[in-house]
Amino acid sequence: MTPTFTRRVPDGDTLARDICDQCGFIAYDNPKIVAGAVVRYGSRILLCKRNIEPGRGRWTLPAGYLENGEAPPEGAMREAFEEASASIVIDSLLAVYTIRRLSQVQLIYRAHLEAPVFAPGPESLAVALFEPHEIPYQDLAFTTVRWALAHADTPGGPFANPDIVDPKGPE
């Protein structure tokens, strides 16, 4: 028998959820987590030209969805390897961005290349190191890439969207 679900507010909750009519299982639909990094080699920043939609042909940071059971820093390292054939070292958490329309949370790290070895992976058309003044801002794939690059040289963090109140409160 194929389960059927009804959307209703479960006991003890405040939001409507899909609940199995047969067994009462609650099918939570929660945000997706993305992990990525602003990867440096010296003063230069590693960017990947996307070979997939959305944003095919535009530049981005190495980043992508976490896999089940994966810690965010591991996901950022995996994505750098998959997209840029790059081995990176995570230095610190740079930012936590919330993309409400996509129900997405992005954890962006500061990182550096272990060695200046990189090449396009299957999801990238090209991979390159850019001095900050050389970054093709007009060809960036996502707003969060622009935010992360703007935050990359700012001491402190983690940072958040410009429209999100600083969780640490006033200094």
Rank of each mutant, 00 (worst) to 15 (best):
P3E: 08
P10D: 09
D153W: 13
G36A: 04
P170F: 06
G75K: 10
A111R: 15
E123W: 14
G36F: 08
C23T: 12
T4A: 10
H151P: 11
L47C: 01
T2H: 03
A95Q: 15
D91E: 12
A95L: 08
A128S: 01
A71N: 06
R50E: 02
T14F: 03
S124T: 09
R78F: 03
I135F: 07
K168Q: 09
D11W: 11
R44K: 13
N68F: 13
R100A: 04
N51S: 06
V89T: 08
T4H: 13
Y137S: 03
V127L: 00
T14C: 00
E53M: 07
P132V: 15
A119S: 12
D139L: 12
P54Y: 14
D166H: 11
V105K: 14
G69F: 14
C48I: 12
L129I: 03
C23N: 05
I26T: 05
A71D: 10
D11C: 01
D21K: 11
A119D: 10
L93N: 03
E70K: 03
I108R: 02
A119T: 10
E74T: 04
D166P: 13
A84W: 09
I52Q: 05
P136A: 01
A150D: 15
G42N: 13
Q138D: 14
E83F: 00
P162T: 04
S92W: 11
R110S: 10
E131Q: 12
P158E: 06
Q138K: 12
V127Q: 00
V145W: 05
V96S: 00
S87L: 08
D18L: 15
P54N: 09
E114T: 10
P31Y: 15
V38Q: 09
I19R: 01
E123V: 11
P62A: 01
D11Q: 07
D29F: 08
D139W: 07
F142C: 00
R100K: 09
T4F: 06
A115G: 00
E171C: 06
L94E: 03
V105L: 12
Q22T: 10
P54M: 09
R8H: 06
L102W: 13
L102P: 10
M1Q: 08
V38R: 07
Y97Q: 01
I108T: 05
P167Q: 04
E171F: 11
A152N: 06
P62K: 02
E123A: 11
S85H: 04
Q106F: 00
C23F: 08
S103H: 13
E79P: 08
R110K: 04
R17C: 13
V89G: 00
L94S: 07
F81G: 00
R40W: 14
H151R: 14
P10Q: 07
A27T: 05
A150F: 15
A63N: 03
E53C: 02
G75A: 11
A111M: 10
R110A: 10
G121P: 09
L66F: 11
G36I: 07
D11S: 02
S103A: 14
A148M: 09
Y65K: 03
